[in-house]
Design a binder for these strands. Structure first.
Lengths: 334, 334
DNA sequence: TTGTAGGCGTTATCAC
DNA sequence: GTGATAACGCCTACAA
């Protein structure tokens, strides 16, 4: 059914070697025969079988995007925005993107020699052990915060500094009791955010404040209404909240509304990452901006450099974050 | 470097045939040798090469998701929400998802025998010609409105009815001059929306109103500020707007704001699809709800049925839409 | 129960 | 310039 290099060769009355040569643009074919072969390929509508080629060249032409299960949900705008950047980066190349959605399938995908490289969204320790990843022997670049001494190049926002900025912004607006809503600490991202929060409190002499971080049990805020409500209720003097992501902040805004808290009158809220919808919400979400598509694009470039043996310049690319003041923050008298 | 079936065979002192048998769980291997082989596989950390297997079994284990270039932007919540459904559907199977992002790459992906089937988001005629698609000979299911007599099974929202409902909702609230903001008519989805709009106007005896559709030149509203503004300004009596999608409606709300029009006081707006963020906006967007993840999941199930030779029941699965009244619509006296 | 051998569609190394 | 032919890693009759 499917037309192969053999069919072309037979039709053209040449050996498959010659056909293969014109396909891969290698020299050593008379221009007359080349023309003939080209014509036959056209007539027969020949298309190379990438699988077969991959078998001999030991490469697949595929890149895996691995998003931790659970935070998955392409709907999480953090991922979709970064992936838009990846799309842009990959357009220039000949690679395709392969994705799996369950953790078991992701593992299989990476083990089965069906990809040449990996773009890994900040993995959580429970899901992918570092040793296991290294054992794969695949070029890998990590997006987002990850183990500090990991062997993989990494592209990420300056989370620590970003959260620090957010706390400072609140401080400047008169807030003195500032909380942090964070994802489970099993994610390195959460640790970085915690560090930024802690560092800011210290610099501002606001005390340790470790009591004022809410560590969610799930990665999805919307599964945590009760603990969020309890957190707010038990801290009546708290006037400002910094969230580890916009996604979190949006959930917080929703929960606050159901509790009868109005933002920013009763509570100032700041997100992180500044995803596109942040500015569309009402009140528009104050956030810490970072070039999310840029991160995706740079990570892709790095991986492709790795794949093509080019020298990869910097092992750690940190994108700056800058506070954006919108409508969820307001001055308060303390 | 990479350990193959041969290595296992040699180590175990058996033929590759036996190893292959235990891998694929075929009978005909002594339980003693089977155990030995299993152990060696474990020790050597053997992983099958899917590419090689695909070569002989003539299948790749991959499914392509094709999203029309331009509307791409995983950030378009319509796509990300449906794809979330696809993810759910595919979790049960052993298939992986492959994506390309430029139109040229997508074509190559489909031609190169690197996928077993296709999930195609309502293609526009300029990008993928039906004849070309058929010629591929790949099991394909289409998501969203498409050519009526296409040979491919199709899962889609009842766009026509949905828009009809939206117009009626506005009518019931007293609106008599109702406009439609639509994407380029090269998309079948736009045509269906137009039909729903037209049909509603007729039933309500509101005249043809063909003058009151704005057909955007681009698929991205945000590139069309000027024409949207002109559209509004030239129709001072228009009090209600139906949009072909929530994505469009969100853009319209933004543009209206910059024009000093307030919603819903000056203008009632209804979106379509009811994507998750619709309810998070303020004012919360009135829309026509449809089970987007369900569409993705059903499409995936259909494709997998097709792929596994199971009987596929219905060639055309239409998901009902129902109007959801939120805050962007208001009564008006005409 | 086990092994041999041919083939899936390509590329690459030889000869001629 | 051109053509055999051996891989690549795997599956599968067919033999033994």
């Amino acid at each position: 059914m499917t037309v192969s290099i053999k069919d072309v060769a037979r039709q053209a009355g040449v050996s498959i070697a010659s056909v293969s040569r014109v396909i891969s643009g290698k020299p050593g074919v008379g221009s007359a025969t080349e023309a003939r072969i080209r014509k036959i390929m056209e007539d027969l509508n020949y298309r190379p079988n990438l699988g077969a080629r991959g078998l001999v060249k030991q490469q697949t032409g595929n890149i895996a995007i691995i998003v931790p299960r659970g935070s998955f949900t392409l709907n999480n705008p953090f991922f979709s925005t970064v992936i838009d950047g990846i799309a842009k980066g990959i357009d220039q190349s000949d690679y395709n993107i392969v994705m799996s959605f369950s953790s078991a399938q992701q593992k299989k995908l990476l083990e089965n020699k069906s990809v040449d490289g990996i773009i890994l969204f900040s993995p959580r320790s429970e899901e992918f052990r570092l040793e296991w990843l290294e054992n794969l022997g695949l070029p890998t670049v990590v997006i987002g915060s990850y183990i500090d001494d990991s062997p993989f190049p990494c592209v990420r926002p300056s989370d620590t500094d970003g959260i620090d900025q957010a706390v400072h912004a609140l401080y400047e607006r008169g807030h003195r009791h500032i909380g942090l809503v964070n994802e489970p600490m099993s994610s390195m991202h959460s640790v970085k955010c915690w560090e930024g929060y802690h560092q800011a409190l210290q610099r501002l002499h606001l005390g340790p404040g470790s009591n004022d971080m809410l560590e969610l049990n799930e990665f999805d805020v919307n599964a945590s209404d009760r603990s969020v409500a309890a957190f707010f209720r038990s801290r009546p003097t708290m006037t400002g909240i910094v969230c580890a992501s916009d996604y979190l902040a949006i959930g917080i805004m929703r929960i606050a509304a159901t509790m009868g808290l109005s933002i920013p009158e009763d509570l100032s809220v700041i997100g992180a990452d500044d995803v596109p919808i942040a500015s569309l919400l009402t009140p528009a979400l104050s956030s810490v901006q970072v070039d999310l598509p840029g991160i995706g694009q740079e990570a892709t470039r790095m991986l492709i450099d790795l794949l093509t043996g080019k020298h990869v310049d910097s092992k750690n690319l940190v994108f700056p974050m800058t506070y954006i003041d919108r409508e969820t923050t307001r001055n308060t008298e303390h």
